[in-house]
């Protein structure tokens, strides 16, 4: 974990080649041999990542029928996108969802610290929290859809017991994003706990012992030792959470159930919009433009985070 998160340029550069010419020639020969060796991996990479990316990029400037070649239309797709109110609404929904899901990180930190301190059953807790991660998102979505059903759901039943009127959580677009966020946080908790748990274990026990001698209590230790030393893991988890939240699609698809759900128009995320354009409405070029815009947004969001991390992430 550490190695991947270290700021670029921090590692000591090896000194440049000062070897005699003979040796350098030998190195050259090894380079030639390396090329056929990396070809299989490169082909895989090219076929699975580079080619789809390039064709998506090119398609975003085209009008593409479902079958057969497309025609270039310049930035038509992009200008249409910018004036498409559905796009802005989807962007807002994705942003709202992402912010809400970030609330899962403090929850995960506290839970991870509690689990680390548990005298017994640490593995059991980890397994329990990890179960939603290895469960099919579709199954998870279905179960939550039943829980959140306005008339027959368990949640509204429980609310009615304490006298709170329930809402149509997955049929009213004022609430759907919150419903997605609850499920998203719950689903992501397992992975976050594993990463943060590993981070916690790498904090030397001596620090806690020393601080205890100095008179620091549990709370003080948490804020003065645990949090700063955990910050690289927190940063990593934040980056992952934001990326996956911006890509959220499956919960909309599964939790809103049918095409007749009238909440769907107010609940679409960017990737849902992409899916709809490319696979339901047969507008591949438009879909490609949405995908590229999403890519740019994710890149900017990630770049900003890497910038900001200098201020709060502690690598020492």
């Amino acid at each position: 974990m550490r190695a991947t998160l270290d700021r670029p340029g921090r590692q000591q550069r090896r000194p440049g080649p000062t070897s005699p010419p003979r040796l350098r020639r030998r190195r050259n020969r090894i380079d030639w041999w390396a090329i056929p060796m990396i070809v299989p991996a490169f082909i895989g990479l090219a076929a699975l990542y580079l080619w789809p990316f390039l064709s998506t990029f090119v398609k975003s400037f085209m009008k593409v029928p479902v079958f057969g070649p497309g025609t270039f239309t310049g930035v038509d797709n992009y200008t249409k996108l910018l004036s498409d109110e559905d796009f802005w609404r989807a962007l807002g929904n994705s942003a709202r969802y992402t912010l809400l899901v970030l609330l899962g990180i403090p929850i995960a930190i506290v839970l991870a610290a509690l689990i680390e301190q548990a005298a017994k059953g640490r593995t059991l807790y980890r397994v329990l929290f990890f179960l939603p991660v290895v469960t099919l998102p579709v199954a998870v979505g279905m179960v939550w859809r039943f829980i959140l059903n306005g008339d027959f759901g368990i949640l509204n039943y429980l609310l009615s017991l304490v006298g709170v009127p329930g809402e149509y959580w997955v049929a009213d677009d004022r609430f759907t994003i919150y419903a997605f966020a609850v499920v998203g946080i719950w689903m992501g908790l397992g992975v976050n706990l594993i990463i943060l748990g590993a981070g916690l274990q790498s904090i030397p026990v001596e620090l806690y012992e020393a601080s205890a001698v100095d008179g620091a209590g549990r709370i003080r230790q948490f804020f003065s030792i645990t949090l700063p030393l955990l910050s690289p893991s927190v940063f990593f988890v934040t980056v992952l959470t934001i990326i996956s939240a911006l890509q959220m699609f499956d919960l909309v698809f599964v939790m809103l159930g049918s095409v007749n759900n009238t909440a769907i128009d107010g609940s679409k995320t960017i990737v849902y919009l992409f899916y709809e354009a490319a696979f339901v409405q047969f507008k591949q070029g438009y879909g490609a433009a949405i995908a590229i815009v999403l890519l740019v947004i994710i890149m900017i969001a990630t770049a900003i985070q890497f910038r900001l991390q200098r201020r709060w992430v502690n690598y020492d």
Binding site: A47, L48, Y49, W51, P52, F53, S55, T56, P137, Q247, M248, F249, D250, V271, F274, Y275, A291, L294
Partner: peptide
């Protein structure tokens, strides 16, 4: 999910 969607065209190309 998104990544799977991107991979799909590649698999198709291979197919």
């Amino acid at each position: 999910m998104h990544r799977r969607l991107l991979i799909a065209p590649a698999i198709i190309a291979a197919a």
